[in-house]
Each structure stands twice: as structure tokens, then as C-alpha cells.
Nucleic acid binder design. Structure first.
Lengths: 213, 213
DNA sequence: AGACTGCTGTTACCTTAGGTAACACGTTAG
DNA sequence: CTAACGTGTTACCTAAGGTAACAGCAGTCT
């Protein structure tokens, strides 16, 4: 076996893998995250054991699927984060990019974040092991950007990481709630969150008559 | 059938229900969230159909279990939120209360938030349908407090809700990350998050030499 | 007393779904 | 021609959620 050569077989296997992932994607987007391995195999026009040969187990398939979408989302976010603009503008752009993404493909979003929901009755893919990674990766990524660019004093690295994860969590929770209830426009949500990050909570006055918060 | 009277049967049924919930609690805390209905029934010294008679299905059992813990946590948070102190102190107290709770009983926390993780191989309880409720309830609760006490202008209600969910998400994500990596003390985490909420992100200076964030 | 009702509990079963073993066919190398 | 390998299949195992049907026992009604 020559290890250096890219044989036809290897290329064909890669292509097959991509095809299978695309089929899985279609099924997951159609049937929700509870899609069964059988259904995915059927959509791909083959049978279960082949899926297992390619991805090991359901978690492997999930991981491969999640990686594609996660990478794509992270690329968009990096672009927004790196855009040439002042800080507030950049923050708003990043929030908007995230929200636009989850708004445009809620099925993908729900798959990545709440995999067990849409299923008809079974459990489906497991979130726990995989939704965290997405949030974590976003958090670490943001932390790195913050740490690189902001002067936060001696404790900067720790602060940056806390803030990275905190801001990502804020974005995520607010986005999740917003996607479910649609209580306002995306623009309004972005501005409200940026306002929060800009200290408006601390600056707001007490309501007349009530005890100060 | 007398509807007004609390019969022995009803009290006994309630007691039974509590016993079952406590057994379920023990199993979930021991085996992780992947605990099977069989295992729970065995721990309670009975068999499956009884569990199903009491809770309908696994989701019902989960919901009952989650409600207990969620209510308890919300009570603690309300107390911290209502304490007589100034705003920053109160915010820090609330964050600290939450973090203390998840630190003290990580198993419970993981059950509520990432149910599918600890399981040996199966899927276990589903998160999607139930972890959201906890976050949502906390978010709505906080929103209400914010809206009651802060003067946020004409758009106050919307702002309060966005902030409620956003802050809860921030707390959650940061807490989850912190619980996993323990990168700093609880006190430091609380201060860092409060600083973030107090606008220190916006106020920080650019790092010398780098492009401004 | 004896039958009826209702609750508690059981055993034994169904179904779905993840995962695997064993086998069949076609292609290519020696 | 045959041996090896990749690709695909069928048929199965197991674990788990969920349910039907039946057994025993307390109180109640005639």
C-alpha cells in the first residue's frame, strides 16, 4: 500500500462521504434532528452499515455534520469580527451576522443547539456532547479577539475569556428566545444587546417610586 | 366521589409520587441523565408501569423532576434579586447565588442543562424540550425584575426582556464553561461578569499596536 | 355475606432504533 | 484463474420506551 499516493479509491471515498453528509443534511433539515439512521441511509440510497462504516456511529455522523455548519458559521463571525470599523459597529455587525444566520436556517440552528426537539418521538441525536462545542468554540474565538485587541490590564487574559463565553452565551440565549417569540425586529434586538454591553444597565435610573434595582 | 375531601388515597398517592421522584433523583444523580426507566423503577422498588401511571411518560417524569430543582433555584435567585442592597451588589449576589448552586450540585445542574451527557450510551432524557424552559423562566423572571425597577424609557418593556434573557444566557454560558474548566475563583468570575455588565467592554482602551476592537 | 369498584402491583409483550455479523457481488492484481 | 479488497446487502442482536392484560386487595353498596 503506497501511503503517499492519492488513489482513485481514496478520492472516491471522500466524494462518497460528502454525498452521504449532504443526504444526511437534507434528511435532518426535513425531518428534524430526530432523523433515524435508517432514514438517512434511505435518502442516500444505501443501507445502514455503510453509514456506520463511514462515520462509526451516530455521534460520528452528527459530529461531521455539525462541524460543517459550525465552521461555516464561525467563518462568517470571524469576518464580521475582523471588519474595519469601530468597536460598537463591529459588535453590532457580529451580533447581526449571528442572528441573520440562525434566522435564515432555523432548522440547522435547532439541529446544532437543540437536536432532540423536532423528533417525532425518539431521542435523536444528543445535544449535550455537541452543542457545547459550538458555544465553546465561539466563546474561545471571541475571547481571543478580545484579548488580542483590548487593553484590559494585567488580568486581561482571564477577563477576555470570561467575557468571550459570557457574550456568546448572551447572544445565544437572546437569539434563541427571539427566534421562538419574534418579539421585535432583528435590528432592535441587536441594538438592545449592544446597549446592554455598553453599560446601559448600570447607567439606567431607578424607576420612580420603586426600590432601586 | 367527593371532590372536596382529601382522602387517604389522595394523600397516599401524593406521598408515593414524592417517593418515586426521590428515587428517580437518586438514580439520576448516580447514573447520570441517561438513567433508564427500568433503573428508576428498580431503585424505587417497583416496576415500570407504575412510573408510567404516575408520570405518563419519561418526559413527564423529567418535567416533574426538573420542576422541583428549577423551582428551588428560582427561589434562591429571587431572594438574591430582592435583597436590600444597591444595584451592583445585588447583581453580584444574584450571579454568585447561581454559581454557588451549580457548583454545589453539578450533577443536578448537568441533568437540567445537558441531560444527554452522562449517559453510558443511550440518549436518555431529552434536553431540548426542557432545558430551554429553565433558561426561559429565569430570563422572564429577570426581565420582570428589571422592568419593574429600572426606568428605561418608552421602550422599557422590550429592553427589559431582551436584557433578561441576554443576562441569563451570559450567566449560564459563563457558568457552564467555568464549571468545566475552573479557570478562576467564583469571586473573580462574578466580578468579571459584573464588570462586563457595567460597560467595561465599551470603556476599555485599544491595545497598543493593534487595530482597535 | 357477596358482588362491585378502584387502586396497586405484576408479567409479558410490542415497537423503534442503534449497531453489527455474515454473506454476496464486482473489480483488479498476481 | 484465483485471491484480495471494496461495496453493498440481508438478517439479526440488544436496549429502551411504552402498553395490555391480568392478579390481589381495600372499601363500599345492596
Amino acid at each position: 500500500m503506497d501511503t503517499t499516493q492519492r488513489t482513485d479509491q481514496e478520492r472516491s471515498a471522500d466524494r462518497r462521504r460528502r454525498e452521504l453528509l449532504e443526504a444526511a443534511d437534507r434528511v435532518v433539515l426535513r425531518d428534524g434532528p430526530g432523523a433515524s439512521m435508517n432514514a438517512i441511509a434511505a435518502e442516500a440510497g444505501i443501507t445502514k452499515p455503510i453509514l456506520y462504516r463511514h462515520f462509526g456511529d451516530k455521534g460520528g455522523l452528527y459530529a461531521a455534520l455539525a462541524k460543517r455548519h459550525t465552521d461555516a458559521l464561525l467563518d462568517s463571525l470571524r469576518a464580521a469580527l475582523d471588519a474595519p470599523a469601530e468597536r460598537r459597529e463591529r459588535v453590532e455587525q457580529t451580533l447581526d451576522t449571528y442572528l441573520t444566520a440562525i434566522e435564515a436556517r432555523p432548522q440547522v440552528y435547532r439541529f446544532l443547539m437543540h437536536p432532540a426537539e423536532g423528533g417525532h418521538q425518539g431521542e435523536g441525536f444528543d445535544v449535550g456532547k455537541h452543542s457545547a462545542p459550538l458555544l465553546r468554540r465561539m466563546g474561545e474565538e471571541l475571547a481571543q479577539v478580545i484579548e488580542e485587541r483590548l487593553d484590559l490590564g494585567p488580568d486581561g487574559e482571564r477577563l477576555a475569556r470570561v467575557w468571550g463565553h459570557g457574550i456568546v452565551g448572551m447572544m445565544h440565549a437572546a437569539g434563541d428566545w427571539w427566534l421562538g417569540e419574534r418579539p421585535c425586529s432583528r435590528r432592535e434586538l441587536v441594538r438592545s444587546l449592544a446597549d446592554l454591553l455598553w453599560g446601559r444597565l448600570a447607567a439606567a435610573g431607578d424607576k420612580v417610586g420603586g426600590p432601586g434595582f
